[in-house]
Amino acid sequence: MTLPDLLVSAIALVRDRRVLMVTARGRDVFYMPGGKIDPGETPAQAAAREAYEEVALELDPDELVELFEVVTQAHGEPDGRLVRMRVFHAQTDAAPAASAEVGALHWVTTAEIDRCPPAGADVLRRLAASGAID
């Protein structure tokens, strides 16, 4: 039996050639601010909601621009279960802040790629290839 793909959305907030990533409380794995797309939500609406829930950023889903979709093995899931992560460019001058579900915020370059699960590592590689981050 094949497990259904995990459908998630995330934001890429880039400043000074670094992208915002977070760690969950008590864990040291870096991941993109984002999460599962709820029934009835568009991927952009999910990205905006998760950005608010995780890093206290109020983003307009209509202003988010989809950059790409990452499809890879889902972190912490059985072999063969894929995550399909739609990554949206977020633009705001507001300061992100860690929510109750987030342990800490990190401004990351490809130097930290070994601290990321497969999807996050793929995002870092793609952002670096586009010239957005170091």
Results as ranks from 00 to 15, higher is better:
3 L>R: 12
5 D>I: 11
10 A>Q: 09
10 A>E: 12
11 I>P: 03
11 I>T: 05
14 V>A: 02
15 R>H: 10
20 L>F: 09
22 V>L: 12
23 T>C: 14
23 T>G: 02
27 R>F: 09
29 V>N: 00
29 V>A: 00
29 V>G: 00
30 F>L: 13
31 Y>M: 01
32 M>C: 04
33 P>H: 11
37 I>G: 01
37 I>E: 05
39 P>V: 14
42 T>Q: 02
44 A>I: 03
44 A>G: 02
47 A>W: 10
50 E>M: 10
51 A>I: 01
51 A>L: 08
51 A>M: 07
55 V>Y: 09
55 V>H: 05
56 A>S: 15
57 L>G: 00
63 E>D: 10
63 E>G: 08
66 E>F: 06
69 E>H: 09
69 E>V: 15
73 Q>M: 04
74 A>L: 06
74 A>Y: 05
76 G>M: 03
77 E>S: 10
79 D>C: 07
79 D>M: 10
84 R>A: 15
85 M>W: 06
86 R>E: 04
89 H>W: 14
91 Q>T: 15
91 Q>G: 13
92 T>A: 13
96 P>F: 12
97 A>T: 14
101 E>A: 14
101 E>R: 15
103 G>M: 12
104 A>I: 07
106 H>L: 01
107 W>Y: 09
107 W>C: 07
110 T>Q: 13
120 G>T: 13
120 G>D: 02
121 A>F: 03
123 V>M: 04
124 L>A: 12
124 L>K: 07
127 L>W: 05
128 A>C: 11
128 A>G: 01
128 A>F: 11
132 A>P: 03
134 D>C: 04
